Deep mutational scan, measured.
Amino acid sequence: GSLMYASIFGNVSAIIQRLYSGTARYHTQMLRVREFIRFHQIPNPLRQRLEEYFQHAWSYTNGIDMNAVLKGFPECLQADICLHLNRSLLQHCKPFRGATKGCLRALAMKFKTTHAPPGDTLVHAGDLLTALYFISRGSIEILRGDVVVAILGKNDIFGEPLNLYARPGKSNGDVRALTYCDLHKIHRDDLLEVLDMYPEFSDHFWSSLEITFNLRDTNMIPGSPGSTELEGGFSRQRKRKLSFRRRTDKDTEQPGEVSALGPGRAGAGPSSRGRPGGPWGESPSSGPSSPESSEDEGPGRSSSPLRLVPFSSPRPPGEPPGGEPLMEDCEKSSDTCNPLSGAFSGVSNIFSFWGDSRGRQYQELPRCPAPTPSLLNIPLSSPGRRPRGDVESRLDALQRQLNRLETRLSADMATVLQLLQRQMTLVPPAYSAVTTPGPGPTSTSPLLPVSPLPTLTLDSLSQVSQFMACEELPPGAPELPQEGPTRRLSLPGQLGALTSQPLHRHGSDPGS
């Protein structure tokens, strides 16, 4: 009898404990919600809404976190579960008819179910419309201010047509639940991603989709105040780019002037030289400038040598048109050559190039014969006009050509200096018209024969001689050997007369 009593008592207590286990969990969670309300000092109306929603959600799901349970299964099984949970929507909604099984599984994985109690606001006026909503159960109302403009029910759709707008718009009203509602919502990016994977279904979906109420604000059109608020930074940046392009296009129409201050000032006329910023005076940081632009901040801005204009002085008759350009485009679109090309026009420029290279940067340069637009006047290309890779490749080509020119210049200078040193070592320090008596009659020769300089066969020296023939050397430049009979510069000019005159010897006659 005691054994029977113990078994009955144990079973009854276990049954009672299981009955009250759900209630215990409910009270535990309710205590957490109330502690949250007390800690954050939530006001009474919002506090009442929180408690009511918790009670309804507990009775609806029995305190089970559906998302946590669903995430515990593998992905393939999750797709089947989501397809079952959203079967009513996918079967009865017209846009989803005719979709393949794979497309429906992908869509079912992207849908999220939302449960809303009465009085809950789903979308506020001015919120971004980031999702498309399908009503599965219940009814909602749409308000503009305090005026109800629409009441939607089961199988209705609200949001915005995503295929017509590249960016999400703003809501033009509040969406509030009238009863307990079940909503299926899919985010904008998720829907577009699935439709991109199934393009054959995309056309059918957009053609058959009928949005019951379009929440997009109709005033959000390009150029409206609301649109400016939504895309303020983007609009200002776009206007700045367009104004920069218009100014650079105007600059290219004036090829007669070359400016070292950047493309923003290349198009300024002579009357605007004294102004601080020219056409860019209202925004000094709008356009890029070269490193020399920092010198323009000092006094005497109108007389600054940074602004270059072609000189009108005539060229000498024998002067060549100019050196070879550094870039391939210089032959086609440049009416002034790079300062480095002028360094190779003569030997005198070679000796004085490194010492006063900055001073020569603004000297007169030889002109190319074609009066085409200036290379320095070409505006900086924006990322939309020329690819970045093209600019980098041009810079690399320019750097390689500069290296080759520097190597060639160093070799030419070394060769010229070597020839000058050899000339100085071969010439005796001094010569006299009267020579010392020699031991015999073989001493009648006034000077030792001097062998002429070897013929220069280097390509670089031939180019130097060509430049010497075309360029007029300055007075202080050293002379180079030329073709024809060679003669030492330090010898007297009348050596031929010395050989014809008898030598005057000093000596005593033994017979006297």
Rank of each mutant, 00 (worst) to 15 (best):
F344H: 11
T436C: 13
L308E: 13
P437E: 10
R360P: 08
D296M: 11
R422Y: 05
L409K: 04
G287W: 15
P429G: 10
L503N: 11
D156H: 06
G173V: 10
P263L: 10
A411Q: 04
Q501N: 12
P316K: 11
A266V: 12
S451F: 09
H504Y: 11
D127E: 14
E295N: 09
P379L: 03
A268G: 09
E364R: 12
I211F: 04
R358D: 04
A166M: 13
T415S: 15
R422W: 11
S451V: 09
L426H: 10
P339I: 13
V147E: 13
S381R: 15
E210L: 03
I135Y: 01
S302G: 07
C368H: 07
M220S: 09
P481K: 15
D356Y: 05
P492V: 11
L491K: 09
P446Y: 12
K170P: 05
F467M: 07
R386L: 13
P339M: 10
G476R: 13
S465F: 03
P222M: 10
G287A: 13
E328P: 04
R394D: 03
P379F: 03
P371F: 10
P441C: 08
D396S: 08
N349W: 01
P502I: 11
L192W: 08
H506P: 10
N155P: 03
P454G: 09
S312N: 11
D156C: 08
L326W: 15
R301Y: 05
L132Y: 01
A370P: 07
L365G: 13
M413F: 12
L395M: 05
P439G: 08
V434N: 15
S432A: 11
A150W: 01
D189S: 07
T336K: 06
G359E: 09
D249W: 05
G359C: 11
G359F: 14
G346S: 13
F467S: 04
T435F: 09
I186Y: 02
F158L: 06
Y180C: 03
L398V: 08
R358A: 10
L230Q: 10
R404I: 04
R307N: 01
R245Y: 11
D396P: 07
R144H: 09
L376C: 07
P428F: 13
G476L: 12
R236H: 07
P305L: 09
V147R: 10
G359Q: 07
L380H: 08
V258F: 11
V434C: 10
K332T: 07
Y165D: 11
S432D: 09
Q501Y: 10
L420E: 06
S352Q: 11
A266S: 10
T228D: 12
L242R: 08
S465I: 08
V147H: 08
Q401K: 03
L453N: 15
I135H: 01
L164Q: 09
E324S: 14
E406V: 08
P270H: 04
R400P: 01
N403Q: 13
L230W: 10
Q399A: 14
T212F: 01
G226Q: 11
L473F: 13
A370D: 09
P310S: 15
P481G: 12
R246Q: 10
P449A: 09
K170V: 08
M220K: 09
D509R: 08
A430R: 09
Q423E: 06
Y180E: 09
L152W: 01
E253Q: 14
R216D: 03
R188Q: 04
E297H: 04
F244M: 12
Q363W: 06
Q361H: 13
F234A: 12
E193F: 10
A268I: 08
P481F: 05
L498V: 08
L426E: 08
L164Y: 15
P168Q: 08
M413H: 05
V194I: 06
A177V: 08
L132I: 06
R238L: 11
S451I: 07
S283M: 05
M197H: 12
G476C: 07
G173N: 11
N403A: 04
D196P: 02
L395T: 05
A469Q: 08
P481R: 08
G493Q: 14
D249V: 10
R358E: 08
A469D: 11
S462T: 13
L405R: 03
M327V: 13
A268N: 12
G493P: 12
S393C: 04
L215V: 02
A397Q: 13
S139I: 07
S357Y: 15
A414M: 11
H506I: 11
R301T: 06
C181Q: 03
G159H: 01
S445Q: 12
F158N: 01
P316S: 09
K241S: 13
T228F: 10
N349Y: 01
L448S: 08
A260H: 10
F234E: 12
G507D: 13
G226M: 10
A150K: 08
H184S: 08
L261M: 13
P161G: 03
S508I: 07
S465D: 14
L375F: 09
L178C: 08
S341Y: 11
T228P: 07
P441N: 10
S465W: 04
I135K: 01
S227T: 12
A370H: 12
P325K: 03
E200F: 02
T212P: 02
R188L: 04
V347T: 13
D249G: 08
N172R: 10
D190N: 03
S352L: 03
E210K: 09
L162T: 12
A131M: 12
L395F: 11
G126A: 02
V427I: 11
N172S: 13
P485V: 04
D251K: 08
F244L: 10
L426V: 09
L132H: 01
E141P: 01
L129M: 03
S259C: 10
R273S: 07
L473G: 08
F158K: 01
D509K: 07
L128D: 04
S202T: 08
A414L: 05
Q363F: 13
P321M: 15
K241A: 12
H204C: 10
R307P: 10
G223I: 13
P339F: 04
G126V: 03
R245F: 09
S304K: 12
D329Y: 08
G267F: 08
E297Y: 15
R247G: 10
P369Q: 10
S303H: 04
F351E: 04
G281Y: 05
K154L: 03
L473P: 05
S312Y: 11
G359I: 13
D190M: 01
G298L: 05
E364L: 09
G223V: 10
R247N: 09
S393T: 05
A477W: 05
L453D: 13
P485T: 04
G438M: 09
R422I: 05
L242W: 14
S304V: 10
S445C: 12
V416M: 15
L242S: 11
R358W: 04
L192I: 09
D190V: 03
K154D: 12
G138M: 02
G138W: 03
L261P: 12
Y431M: 14
D196W: 08
D146R: 07
R144V: 06
E295R: 10
S352H: 09
T252A: 12
P263I: 13
Q494G: 12
G173E: 03
P475W: 14
L473K: 07
G507P: 14
T499E: 15
Q401V: 13
Y431T: 13
T130A: 08
L209A: 07
G355C: 04
R367N: 11
P441A: 09
L453F: 11
L376W: 11
A411V: 08
L261S: 11
D127C: 01
S500K: 08
G281L: 11
R301C: 14
L195F: 10
K239W: 06
S443Q: 11
S357N: 07
S445D: 07
S357V: 09
P369H: 09
P199G: 05
G298T: 14
L480M: 05
I211C: 03
E324F: 10
L375A: 12
V194G: 02
P439W: 09
Q363I: 05
G269D: 13
D251L: 12
S312D: 09
V175P: 02
Q361T: 11
E406M: 06
G322M: 13
Q418S: 08
Y165A: 07
T130F: 14
A268Y: 10
S333L: 08
G298D: 15
S313E: 12
V427A: 07
G287D: 08
G476M: 15
D203R: 10
L365A: 11
N219V: 10
G355I: 08
W206V: 09
D249A: 07
T252I: 11
V427K: 08
P441Y: 04
E141N: 04
P429H: 11
P310D: 12
T252Y: 10
T228I: 07
L503Y: 08
E328Q: 11
G223L: 09
I350N: 07
A469S: 10
E297W: 15
L129K: 01
L375Q: 11
P199E: 06
N219Y: 13
R505V: 10
I186N: 01
D296E: 09
D396N: 05
F134P: 03
R265N: 12
L398I: 05
G269Q: 15
Y165R: 06
K185C: 13
